[in-house]
Design a protein around this nucleic acid. Structure first.
Length: 337
DNA sequence: GGTCAGGTGGAAGTTACATCA
DNA sequence: GTTGATGTAACTTCCACCTGA
């Protein structure tokens, strides 16, 4: 898979970025992930019924702060090439009739070709059709759920296409890792694009269509979500790093500016006997305001000394610190004299 | 209504395997 | 042929939530 990262053109303020937990699982994500408000737990901690509503909620989201585009390297199935924007999901649209059409290019059609050995897309294609018997291998607290999958195995007629791993040991306990075909992966990707979580019905339909076990589909979605989150974390990390660098540079510049001001003050002892001045940032207009205890007039004094406070300050910070000495924040020179 | 046990799905972390340089 | 890195399928554990008794 090839990754292409793209950052949003107009990112939200840094503060809002930090305030909101990153929601990485959006309805329109999958290939294009966006982070905005909401939290993972709000998504994950819900029942099956509410999960469906979650996926609907995800539809309405704010513009992304940081956007990660995951471009699938896998070739798109032929139907997708013909009409890339239109994919037919039987579990979404109930258009299984199209899927079963002879010569059709849906996943199952491709699978049949693969089983015939005429259109293997990769050396792993055969391995991907392995159907392992996990009835012994699997054990644990999820027995009922796994029984469900096992029952599904029994119900679906895959005897012909299922075969045990060539590398299984005598006990059949080896964990044979199969690789999904490009078509299967692409189809799962498209499904993930639609819904990054699956309800049982969707899982079953998808498994049936891809000729996989529901457990495999479930695992694939789990891993896909994990990969999505990991990539998004990397993007977030990069973004925060750049923010940190920017703030560090800003801090360095302000420190330098402060030193210059102090030097200027000490070089003008007569005119610059200023009372303690506090620079405060107005949170609404982002302008710096001064609070002085007396009515001294530093700008006028500075001008009289041959320079202007405005020009001096604007060398370093033209917008904010100049405002601190702008006429709206200090008294007129005449008033002082 | 409150409690508890069982079931379920997801996240996080890990393991194991396949592939490739 | 061997080896280390990498990607990823599959697993384990834990947690939160839901449901029925």
């Amino acid at each position: 898979m090839e990754l292409a990262l793209s950052l949003g053109d107009a990112p939200k303020p840094f503060s809002s970025f930090l305030e909101k937990p990153q929601k990485i699982l959006g309805r329109d994500l999958g290939f294009c992930m966006a982070s905005d408000g909401g939290g993972d737990h709000q998504i994950s901690r819900s029942s099956t019924a509410s999960r469906e509503s979650d996926s609907e909620r995800k539809g309405s989201s704010d513009p992304p702060i940081v956007q990660l585009d995951l471009l699938p390297f896998s070739p798109v199935p032929r139907t997708h090439q013909a009409n890339p924007s239109k994919l037919s999901f039987s579990w979404l649209t109930q258009n299984l009739a199209v899927a079963a059409e002879p010569g059709s290019t849906n996943i199952q059609g491709r699978r049949v070709e693969q089983l015939d050995g005429t259109a293997l897309s990769s050396p792993n294609s055969a391995a991907s059709s392995f159907q392992m018997d996990f009835s012994i291998y699997r054990s644990g607290s999820r027995s009922s759920k796994r029984d469900f999958d096992a029952n599904y195995e029994a119900e679906t007629d895959r005897g012909a296409s299922s075969r045990a791993s060539d590398h299984e040991d005598e006990n059949g306990m080896a964990r044979k890792k199969l690789r999904l075909t490009k078509e299967q992966s692409a189809f799962l990707e498209e499904s993930f694009k639609e819904h990054n979580t699956l309800n049982p019905k969707q899982k079953l339909a998808l498994a049936k269509q891809l000729n996989l076990r529901p457990r495999q589909v479930e695992v694939w979605f789990q891993n896909r979500r994990a990969r999505t989150k990991l990539k998004q974390t990397e993007v977030d990390c990069e973004y925060l790093k750049r923010c940190c660098e920017t703030l560090t540079e800003e801090n360095r510049r302000l420190q330098k500016e402060l030193q210059e001001l102090r030097a200027f003050k000490s070089s003008q002892p007569f005119y610059m006997q200023l009372p303690p001045t506090t620079l405060t940032m107005c949170p609404s207009c982002e302008r710096v305001a001064t609070t002085t205890t007396t009515n001294n007039t530093p700008p006028a004094a500075a001008k009289a000394a041959g320079g202007t406070a405005d020009t001096t300050l604007s060398l370093a910070k033209p917008t904010k610190l100049v405002a601190a000495f702008s006429p709206s924040h200090v008294q007129a020179p005449q008033a002082a004299s």
